[in-house]
Each structure stands twice: as structure tokens, then as C-alpha cells.
Design a protein around this nucleic acid. Structure first.
Lengths: 127, 127
DNA sequence: CCAAGTGTATTGTTGTATTGATACACATGG
DNA sequence: CCATGTGTATCAATACAACAATACACTTGG
């Protein structure tokens, strides 16, 4: 798998290692990363995004302790075999819950009509 | 205006002063806070939420430099008179854009069907 | 076997951000 | 005038992310 699977924003408020961890979790749950699949090496990702290898290692390490990845000594990281790949819409939706709640909260504070919000979401989805 | 207009989550990743600033901006844009309306005092908000007064002051100060609030010496902060209260849906929607983009990005990573996402949003809106 | 590739433990440094404690300047109302 | 209420400037403490530079244990492929 190429190192470009990850999208990192260096200037975002969310720390880099956490951006990586979040993407890993969602891409595994969504099936874009299948069990047994090998991940780009720490140095590969670090080089491609011009960040520190240890920052990537930190994300991988946390993913491992969450049961998402398995460490193959001398080889690299691999998507855990028992990592639920195609958890039902239900389970995957749970991972979207925080972002969904936040969106709704902000929309309420803005007193926006729900129709406009849904429309915008749809537009962003297609675009 | 009561100090309970703000909702702060002390354990969230987003810093408190930024939570306050965001809510201020949206509630003013949405019209829940009308121009000329007085805000709860720094100490009031701080006491109510058990946080440091300077944290609230920081949010107020930033809001002032953004033109959202006006400082009345010895009196308190007031919603700026020239603060666009009922900017069109268009303008208010712009404030929702970051949250909307993030939601869509995560939904894509999760490979969720757009219908499920819209459904959940609607459900959260009504609930 | 050994060169080259894995991840990682270690130590230290740097920069930044958040929060807190205190003291101050100002305005209002009695 | 002065007690009481504003906001805030200032300084300090703390936490954390990220980087840097090694060194190490391990596996694979030649």
C-alpha cells in the first residue's frame, strides 16, 4: 500500500499522530484496508509527508494497542486479521457519530434549516 | 443573558476558549444573540462552568478583534451593533463548512452510503 | 552470512498552547 | 467618594506535540 493513503494537515489543530490514527480506524472499518494487508513503512510515510518517523510509529503503536494492526517483526505492520472489516452500517455509523453530532450542534447554533444542511452535505459528497 | 448560554466540554480536544469563540460566532450569526445584547460577565461564565476567568476573557477578546463584540469599559461586553445578525443562509452556511467537510471526509473513509448519513443527521436534528 | 529493510526504545531539545494566579485600570451606582 | 462590578495585562506553570539523532532487535532476500 502506498504512503499516499494518508492525508495529513500539518497546520490542523488535531495532532498528526492522531490524524493518522483516526484515518486508520475508519479505513479499516470501511474496508479500504483489508485484514492482512500490509501498511506503508514508517519511514515511507514519514518521507512522503516530510514528518518525523517516530510520529508515524506512535500512530502505528496506538493502532496496535487498539487491536487494529498487528506487528510483524522485521516486516512491518499489517491490518489485524480479527479487525472487523465489514462491520455493518450500524457499527461503522457509530464511528461517524461524533462528527455528526458536532455538525448538528453547530447547525442549530446557526439556526440553519435542516434542508440546507442536507443539501450541502449531498453536494460535498458528490463533488 | 445567562451564563448557561455556553456549552463547554472541559475534556474535549478543542481548547475551552476556542469552544467559546466558535459558539459566540455562530450564535451571533444565527441571531440568537442580537446586536446590543449584553453578554454574561467573565466571572459569571467562569464561575458557572468552573473555569478560569482569563480563559473566558481570552475568548471575549478574540471575539472583539473579530468585530463580533464591543467592549464597554467597566460595564461588560456587548454584541457589536454592526455584527451581521441575519446574514443570509449562504453566509451562515459558510460557518458550517468546516464541520460539513470533516463529516463527509470521514463518511468517505468509512465507505458509508450517503443515504445512511443523511438519515442519521436528520434523526439527530429532530431528536 | 549479511546487507537492507522492518518497527521502536531512548534521550534530549524546541516550540507552542493552554490554563492559572495575581494585580491593575476603568466605570457605575449609591 | 468608594464599594462593587467590569475586562485584562502580566507572569508563571504545565503539558504536549514534534523533531532529531541514535541504537537496537528482528526478518527477509540474495
Amino acid at each position: 500500500m502506498d504512503a499516499s493513503i494518508f492525508t495529513i494537515q500539518p497546520n490542523a489543530a488535531e495532532p498528526i499522530y492522531r490524524q493518522l490514527l483516526g484515518q486508520l480506524g475508519r479505513m479499516i472499518a470501511g474496508g479500504q484496508l483489508a485484514p492482512g494487508e500490509r501498511l506503508p513503512s514508517v519511514r515511507e510515510v514519514a518521507g512522503h509527508h516530510a514528518i518525523n518517523p517516530m510520529t508515524v510509529s506512535r500512530a502505528y503503536g496506538l493502532a496496535e494497542s487498539e487491536g487494529l494492526l498487528e506487528r510483524r517483526r522485521g516486516v512491518g505492520m499489517v491490518v489485524a486479521t480479527q479487525a472487523a472489516p465489514a462491520a455493518g452500517d450500524q457499527a461503522r455509523m457509530a464511528l461517524l457519530e461524533p462528527a455528526a453530532r458536532e455538525l448538528v450542534r453547530q447547525a442549530r447554533e446557526l439556526e440553519l434549516p435542516i434542508e440546507s444542511v442536507l443539501k450541502r452535505i449531498t453536494s460535498l459528497w458528490e463533488g
